[in-house]
Design a protein around this nucleic acid. Structure first.
Lengths: 209, 209
DNA sequence: TTCTTCACTCGACCGACGGTCTACATTATA
DNA sequence: TATAATGTAGACCGTCGGTCGAGTGAAGAA
């Protein structure tokens, strides 16, 4: 159907422009008129597709999160990979710089975009932590991992990672950021009960620490 | 000086009313006119004391954080307490339900108050984590603790605690919240390298887990 | 006492915002 | 060609955060 295709085309146009502008100007400083101008439409058209400015934000975050979830599930489903590698791949699947509009992703790091950050964090942790926890459970039953609170630990790990590695919320020096990354990797080892350096060495290699 | 005393009285009046209203209505839905009505002043008076609505929010968060910091430093300074007890007391010092306006503290938990939450989290972690890390360092030199990344771990712990134990950001069942609390205590043990159940048993007792 | 000063207060006013509404254009169906 | 459904347009509205210049009244100077 041509109509419904047009519908999603236009809708995505709005989503793309809004995502870019939210990132560049900040969500609250980006006005609906800004979006209108970028897309080249009138107010009525905008409100035909979305019932509020915030609904646009939610839709953008849904779109980004969905990409991450698909990649994370894909990473978790490879039978030939060890649980250690699966965990690392799932965490890496959250780096979506290329697939997603860069301006939007960078905008998440800005301090003034607290709402964007919180919505993204919440959805990301809610969707990705269970995938991660399932892999950890597999690792436990294989005797590779040992963990008392797999699901909780993964939520804690993701929450702390996303918040602390975010440039905008805490102003930190680059070397301090490196230390945080090392600490997170070391902590992940403790959470998974991995005694040897398997995860750490592979992990640091992955991240280029 | 009578003038300067009046000045802070009026200023605190605005802060008190704004804090309550931010909590009840949410920061963005609370208008400056709402505050005006609650205090019984005119627009001009408000903008004589604060140059923007956001500056009021920052001042409120500063005030709350300062209370926590004072209590945390006090808890850290008792020479007769063991590092374990100090750590627990510092963490407990962040529960300020009574000293601070309750409406405001409850408001921090509401999902629509992302900006309030993020500002509070940022300042709280920045101010309290170093206090905690210093106590951990003491514990390490006493041979009670063993930790590779004291400062980083404390930042991670506080970030995850404040975010995950917040009712508003993730919607969780009560029993799930209890599990998160247990996991955080267990994680704190791992972070501090406390082998025995010292921290866990005392901690759970403190929190009534 | 009278004058001057200035911290403090007031509220009308402003531009811009998110959102609504109704009229109109275009297309698919009949 | 007539009819409905789907999109599009932009004038319009109420409200918001913030500005501004005109006061007010008490304290110090004369």
């Amino acid at each position: 159907m041509k109509v419904s295709k047009e519908y999603h085309e236009r809708r995505n146009e709005i989503l793309d422009a809004a995502g870019r502008l939210f990132g560049v100007k900040g969500y609250s400083k980006c006005t609906v008129n800004d979006i209108l101008g970028a897309v080249g439409i009138a107010k009525g058209t905008f409100y035909y597709y979305f019932k509020s400015k915030e609904e646009v934000l939610d839709a953008i975050i849904d779109r980004v999160t969905e990409i991450v979830v698909v990649r994370a599930k894909e990473a978790a489903s490879h039978p030939e990979l060890s649980p250690v590698m699966k965990v690392l791949n799932i965490i890496l699947s959250m780096r979506v710089k290329n697939e997603v509009d860069n301006d939007f992703m960078e905008g998440l790091h800005k301090p003034e975009n607290a709402l964007m950050h919180q919505k993204s964090l919440s959805l990301m942790v809610t969707r990705v932590a269970p995938i991660l926890a399932k892999v950890v459970d597999e690792g436990i039953s294989q005797g590779i991992f040992k963990s008392d609170f797999p699901a909780q630990y993964m939520r804690i790990f993701l929450t702390a990672s996303i918040t602390l590695l975010d440039d905008g919320i805490f102003q930190v020096k680059p070397e301090e950021q490196q230390m945080t990354l090392r600490a997170l990797v070391a902590l992940l080892e403790k959470m998974l009960g991995v005694e040897d350096e398997a995860l750490c060495s592979v992990g640091n290699q992955y991240w280029g620490v």
